[in-house]
Structure formats: structure tokens, C-alpha cells
Design a protein around this nucleic acid. Structure first.
Lengths: 230, 230
DNA sequence: GCATATTTGTCCGTATGTATA
DNA sequence: CTATACATACGGACAAATATG
């Protein structure tokens, strides 16, 4: 195991909360999901059972349950008899992820007229948060706000299952962001497009919003692919 | 445990194949998923670790990994310190499942012009299979063909992730079909609508196809809800 | 309401098979 | 090719929670 990975693991140990409300395996999965999506555990990293297990103070059985969850969410891959690794996205993965986003998000904005006021408000808030974070130069937060904006778009549809599915799609896409060298340059230009899009949605012009979002996502996909290794 | 459930479990034992290519937990999950989606294990059934584990000849640890997978797919629910049960859908679940289907399937048919010929052919085949099964009076197969038709509609989008997501949505929806008393009367009227819809899609009229599919799904949702207990 | 039996949650030790240095 | 490291799967143990009489 690389030293960097070891640091990430030992860092996990302190995260263990005292109370065991949900199952241990789920809490372990939560912690590791966090570390994977925030980039502490880079794509391709190996996740050895005993190193991670001892770092978090859980048994192999419990850890394996957590691994199984992460594999199911596509944040990790399990190679039979070889171990578990942080997922490394291929170009085809990125293409598929944007295909899903385009289909679902476009459909959601087109039906935005039926959305609840709370969902609209959440979307507007995400736009404002992104602009505020950019003004203050807090670039990681800009990326976070951008993701919340898109999650808010999905929430316009009012479907818990679609929400969760797209949350997973977003988490997976973050794996691609972390191999980028300059996330700031990637997210910044979309701030104004987010505002324009939100305005169209609030105005009830679903058709125009959908068209704008389609080109938005196509641009983002192209730019992201340009940053990815072969 | 009820005698009926015990039968379902003992029936599983003989299913164990000789070679262990994928992991044991996954094979166990496959078997139980099959039994749940085909109705052998009714919604609400308890799945005791001891009984299921011994019936399938796997240890508790392995079985718990399989359970975790099924819970993640929403085919089962785990109540802390109480055990695992086959999922029982609420009316809100059914409503959400149809919301997802409507959004995704409608978006897929609207973009059907970009679909591959193979995807179109699969859709046409599902329509023909359904009509053939109905003509021969094989009603369970009519239901199967109908699900394949809708899965083919999703496949028009060409996204593996959307495919898998909707396959899971379909599996979950089957839980509602199994509490219905007369599945035949439910599926039969949709045979001709499937054919009409396929014709519109093949003609490239995505807009008309989408409108037709939207009312189709709204009708199906209403009828299914009418058969569900409070 | 109480005492008991059952079941789950969690952990450990170990045997076996597989991949890699 | 051997040796080492590791993953897979099993069985047993015990505490805690739940169900049952």
C-alpha cells in the first residue's frame, strides 16, 4: 500500500462515531464513500482488507459488507481473488454518465412546471451559493454547489428513486473530476449558465431550458473528456 | 417460518451449481432475487438467516453479504436486530416507480430517432413475443414479454447504467404485481397498445410516441393502484 | 410484567485456493 | 518453482436485542 493511502486510512479511524445507530458496515461504507468522492482515495487505489479493517477497527466480515456496498455503487471494483480497488473511470464510462445526466436532467426541467416551490427554491439557492463561493475564491465549494444545482434539477421531478440514482451518478462522475489538474477552470464558466438556466426554469419555459441544458451538458462532457487520460 | 416459505427455501438448495465462478454471495443473491421477483417468496416474508443459510448451504457471513445486496436493490428490507424481509411496496412506492418509468421511458422514446437498429429490432421482437404468448394462452409469458418491451424502450437510449437502473425498477414493480389476484386481466389490454407504440417509434414520430406512452403509463399506474391493499 | 428462548450484530480463528514476487 | 501475501468462505463465540411463554 502506498503511504498516501495509508494516511487516508489512518485518518478514517478518528471519524468513528461513538454511537452505533445504523449498521457498522453502512457507517464504514459512508466513511469510505466520503473519502473516495472527495478524492482522498484516488482512483485505482487498492483497498486491502486488513489495512483498512484495522485502521477503522472493524473485522474483515464487517468490512467486506461495506466493500460490497461500494462495489454495488460502482465507486469500487472487486476483482475476484485479487481485492477491491477504487474505481477508475474509462472514457466510455464518462460518456455514459453524461448520457444519463442529459436524458434525466433534460426530462426533469421540461416538466419543471409541475415542480414544488421548495424544489425551485433549492435550485435557486444552489445557484446563489455557487456564485458566492466563486466571489470568495473558495473553489472547491464552487464545485460542490454546482453538483447541488444539478441535484436540485433532478429533484424537480419529485422522485426519491431518481434522486438517489442521480446522486450515485454524480458520485461516480467525481472520480473523473479528481484526475483533472485544474478543477477551477472546469467549473467556473458554468456559473453564469446555471443562473440563466434557473431563470428559464423559474419562468416556466421548460422547452428553452431543456435546449439550453442539453448543450450545457454536451459542452461539459467534451471538456471533461479532453482532460481524461486515454 | 411458514411452511410455504420453507418450501421455497428448500427448493433453492438444488439450484446450487457446481462451479463457483463469481462469488458465493452473488450467486446466493441471484437465486433469492429470482425467487422474489417470480413471486415464490411473497412480499413481507421473513428471511431468517439460519433457515435460508442452511437451505442454501452457506455460512451466515456469506448469506449476510447476499442479504446486503438484496436490500441495496430494494427487493428486501433489513430491520435492525429484527431481520430481513421481502419488501412490501407502499402506494407511494408504486407512484414513485411509475414516475420514474414515465420520465425515463418517455425521454427514451422521444430520442428514439438516434437508437440503433438492433435496439429497434429487440423492441419489435418483444411485441411479437407478447402477442404470440397471448394467442397461445401462456399468460405468465405475456407479462414477461411486456416487461421486455419496456426494457427494450429503455435500451433505445443506449445507456448501460440507465438499463440497469430500470431493470431494478422493473424488478421492484413486480412486487406489486404479485399481490394482484388476476395478472392476466392487467397485462392483456396493453398488447395492442404496445404494437401501436412500436409503430410510432419505428415511424420516427417521437413526439406522438411519447404522448401515447405517457397516457399508457398513467393508465397502468391507476389500474395497478386499484388492485393494491391500503 | 417477567423470565426464557430465539435471533441478530459483530468479531475472531482458520482452512483453502489464488495471484504475485 | 517456491514462497509469501491475500482473498474467499466457513464455523464458533458472545453480547445485545427481540420474540415468546
Amino acid at each position: 500500500m502506498s503511504p498516501a493511502a495509508a494516511d487516508a486510512f489512518t485518518a478514517l479511524a478518528s471519524d468513528r462515531g461513538g454511537l452505533a445507530r445504523s449498521s457498522t458496515a453502512e457507517r464504514v461504507a459512508d466513511i469510505m464513500r466520503e473519502r473516495i468522492t472527495d478524492g482522498s482515495l484516488a482512483p485505482g487505489s487498492r483497498l486491502p482488507e486488513d489495512a483498512v479493517g484495522s485502521a477503522l477497527g472493524v473485522s474483515r466480515n464487517t468490512l467486506r459488507e461495506a466493500f460490497r456496498l461500494l462495489v454495488h455503487e460502482r465507486l469500487a471494483v472487486a476483482e475476484f481473488n485479487r481485492g477491491v480497488f477504487v474505481r477508475r473511470l474509462t472514457r466510455d464510462d464518462v460518456i455514459d454518465l453524461y448520457r444519463v445526466r442529459s436524458l434525466v436532467e433534460c426530462a426533469a426541467v421540461r416538466r419543471a412546471a409541475e415542480a414544488t416551490p421548495a424544489a425551485i427554491a433549492a435550485m435557486r439557492q444552489a445557484v446563489a451559493d455557487g456564485e458566492q463561493a466563486a466571489a470568495a475564491g473558495r473553489w472547491p465549494e464552487v464545485g460542490t454547489a454546482n453538483m447541488r444545482f444539478h441535484q436540485a434539477i433532478v429533484a424537480l421531478s419529485g422522485s426519491p428513486r431518481l434522486d438517489e440514482f442521480m446522486r450515485q451518478v454524480t458520485a461516480e462522475l467525481r472520480l473523473a473530476f479528481h484526475v483533472m489538474e485544474n478543477p477551477r477552470a472546469f467549473h467556473e464558466p458554468y456559473l453564469s449558465r446555471n443562473r440563466d438556466l434557473a431563470a428559464l426554469i423559474e419562468a416556466g419555459d421548460g422547452v428553452a431550458a431543456e435546449r439550453q441544458l442539453a448543450t450545457y451538458l454536451a459542452d461539459a462532457e467534451r471538456e471533461l473528456l479532453a482532460t481524461q487520460p486515454a
